[in-house]
Amino acid sequence: MTEAPNTPRLPLWEVFIRPRNGLAHRHVGAVHAADAEMAMLAARDVYTRRGEGRSIWVVEARHLHASDPDDKAALFDPADDKVYRQPTHYHVPEEVGDM
């Protein structure tokens, strides 16, 4: 028996966990759930069983906007020719010490 044709599929939610305060949230995977509260419970049950979490974000996958890998050239500006953005480009006299 297949799923009844009018049963909507439970949406996919991407899960991000902050393991400790001071660190940023990291993408750890995804869960299926009907709504945000259930997605949060699922994320906790699936991705923090070994104490891996201080904070959980769940985002319905359809709300996640991703860059197109083909746009790499345009979107991610090669910084090689903008050396004035690098600290090593500038000379600080030794007498002044660290800066």
Binding site: M1, E3, T7, P8, A34, D35
Partner: peptide, 16 residues
């Protein structure tokens, strides 16, 4: 899978 069908349907219906 079959026994769980009504549960999944309920979750989806509630969300809707």
């Amino acid at each position: 899978h079959d026994d769980g069908q009504w549960v999944r349907a309920a979750a989806a219906a509630h969300a809707a």
